[in-house]
């Protein structure tokens, strides 16, 4: 054994000099580094390309209609000589904002509730299962939510909510129910679309909130419990203020998702381009309009108008998501 060791030691350094592999290893590493770098640049280029292609494709419509593209709610693809085609996107833009905001109204308190429950109150034995349920809810594809909304939620809503309200509204004209039912159409409307959106973004916001709550240092929590605070007081007075800034980011992350959600909304919002008259009116969002019309767009101007809508959506979501990421820092997803 000792002999072998000696022979190996003597063989050592010289063999290293002669190593044929060393320089080729260096070259391989350089190529590898280059490949990794290129992959990252492909990502950058994709986002840049996305922005440019939307801007270029949408420019004809925006330049043709000017400010009216954003302020008018007339959306008329079928032009006739005395009534030429016209595209005003106010309807879908407002529809996008309303559905997303109403959805957040439902989702935010629920998401905070779920996150707090999981972190503070959930019995250890079911915590795992609740967490899985939340993850599954996040995993269900948009189009499946759309199917459920279209075939289950909308009919139910029409039968059990809108029909009674309609009766009340008829008995009390000018009352609260009457206002609520202004412009009401079928169960496929802005409100039910918002509910679907709320269910969809709920798990995302809840997950981020949970991570944020878990990021509160243990000693801060323990110190407040040590003073005799109830769990509610610890959460409300210590933990939520502690994560305040990131919490706003988490909410905006959810908003960003809600703004751009496509298939589920397309299935259930009713797809009318008019300016919505009430929350139970049918409407449209930017994404649903594109999804519905792009494949059958009648002419260049129609196509361009739809891409211009896409550009507007990009600008809105990019700003919201960018703000969300900045508020969240780079740590949490």
């Amino acid at each position: 054994m000792a002999d072998a060791a000696v022979s190996l030691v003597q063989a050592g350094p010289q063999r290293i000099e002669d190593s044929p592999g060393a320089s080729s290893t260096g070259r391989k590493d350089a190529i590898f580094h280059g490949l990794c770098f290129s992959a990252a640049m492909v990502l950058m280029a994709t986002l840049a390309g996305l922005l440019i292609s939307l801007a270029v494709g949408g420019w004809p419509a925006i330049s043709h209609f000017g400010l009216q593209f954003f302020t008018s709610s007339e959306w008329n693809p079928s032009g006739t000589p005395d009534h030429p085609e016209f595209y005003g996107a106010a309807g879908p833009i407002v529809g996008t904002l309303i559905t997303a905001l109403v959805a957040m109204l439902f989702a935010l308190p629920l998401a905070i509730g779920i996150a707090v429950f999981l972190v503070e109150f959930c019995p250890k034995s079911i915590e795992h299962w609740v967490a899985i349920a939340v993850e599954l809810l996040a995993g269900i594809p948009s189009i499946v939510y759309g199917m459920w909304g279209l075939f289950v939620l909308a009919p139910w809503f029409e039968e059990h909510v809108m029909t009674p309200l309609r009766l009340v509204a008829m008995d009390h004209p000018g009352g609260f129910a009457d206002h609520l039912m202004t412009g009401a159409s079928s169960g496929s409307n802005i409100f039910t679309a918002s509910i679907i959106l709320a269910i969809m973004v709920l798990p995302f916001i809840a997950t981020v909130f949970r991570e944020l709550l878990l990021s509160v240092p243990t000693h801060v929590r323990e110190a407040s419990y040590g003073m005799g605070c109830t769990p509610f007081e610890v959460v409300a007075n210590i933990m939520l203020p502690y994560i305040r800034k990131s919490a706003v980011g988490a909410a905006m992350l959810g908003l960003g998702r809600a703004l751009g959600e496509t298939m589920a909304v397309t299935f259930i919002i009713g797809n009318s381009h008019a300016f919505p008259k009430g929350v139970f009116d049918s409407g449209s969002t930017i994404a649903s309009t594109i999804a519905n019309e792009f494949a059958e767009a009648t002419g260049d101007l129609h196509t361009s108008a739809l891409i211009a809508l896409g550009f507007v959506l990009f600008v809105i979501t990019f700003s919201v998501l960018a703000a969300a990421r900045l508020l969240l820092g780079q740590e949490t997803q």
């Binding site: 292609s53 751009g260 994404a287 594109i290 739809l306 990009f314 979501t317 990019f318 990421r325």
Partner: peptide, 24 residues
């Protein structure tokens, strides 16, 4: 910058990516 843009792309509306791929 790449990390930031990737995070944005992560949540970007997929319909827009459809439009982009259509154009390209």
């Amino acid at each position: 910058i790449v990390r930031f843009l990737n995070d944005v792309l992560l949540s970007a509306p997929s319909i827009l990516i459809g439009l982009f791929a259509y154009e390209l």
